[in-house]
């Protein structure tokens, strides 16, 4: 076998293996085992298994649920799957001062653990920015962003 024929065989083999690997990752079930965060509904579906383990919980901050305790630098809020009123919700208690972008309605990822008292105690609070970039005051910013993050959250679920 000439080296050129050998090289072509190598190429075809590599392309086949690479394509199969990609297809396996894209269409296989690896996504179910590769979880960066749980949504509230996914975590609640685990039942008692979710208690105690250090996990990440991601979702949107329910408007009107944020309350601050500035003395103890504790912020409590509710994280929901989506902006829909009937979405699954989990109460979160975070000891970390949230990033400046933290606001009601924004996406967050909190790291901590869930307990039988149905409170998720978080030691790490991260803001999940959407792919929206708008100049301020170009009309309907908050409203638009709300609708977009709503539809995005729905799409993902």
């Amino acid at each position: 076998m000439t080296s050129e024929a050998r090289n072509r065989l190598i190429a075809i083999g590599a392309i086949v293996v690479a394509g199969a690997a990609l297809a396996w990752i894209a269409f296989g079930s690896i996504g179910e085992n590769l979880v960066y965060y749980w949504k509230p509904s996914e975590m609640l579906a685990q039942g008692t298994k979710a208690y105690g383990a250090t996990v990440r919980l991601g979702g949107v901050v329910v408007p009107g649920s944020v309350s601050w305790n500035s003395e103890h630098t504790i912020v409590t809020f509710t994280v929901a799957d989506t902006h829909k009123p009937d979405a699954a919700k989990v109460n979160v208690r975070s000891e970390q001062v949230p990033p400046q972008m933290f606001r009601e309605g924004i996406g967050v990822v909190v790291e901590g653990s869930f307990a039988a008292d149905q409170i998720f105690r978080s030691s790490r609070l991260m803001v999940n920015h959407s792919n929206e970039y708008r100049a301020p005051g170009d009309g309907g910013m908050p409203d638009d962003a709300w609708k977009k993050s709503l539809s995005q959250a729905d799409e993902k679920s």
């Binding site: 190598i10 190429a11 590599a14 690479a18 990752i25 894209a26 991260m126 999940n128 920015h129």
Partner: peptide, 29 residues
Amino acid sequence: AAGVILGYVTLPITWFSVQWWNSLHQRQS
């Protein structure tokens, strides 16, 4: 060359990672 053809698989995974999985990084704008 053979190795990097296999390695290139990481590029579409990187590109689509924000769509396939829950992530902190936002999706493509």
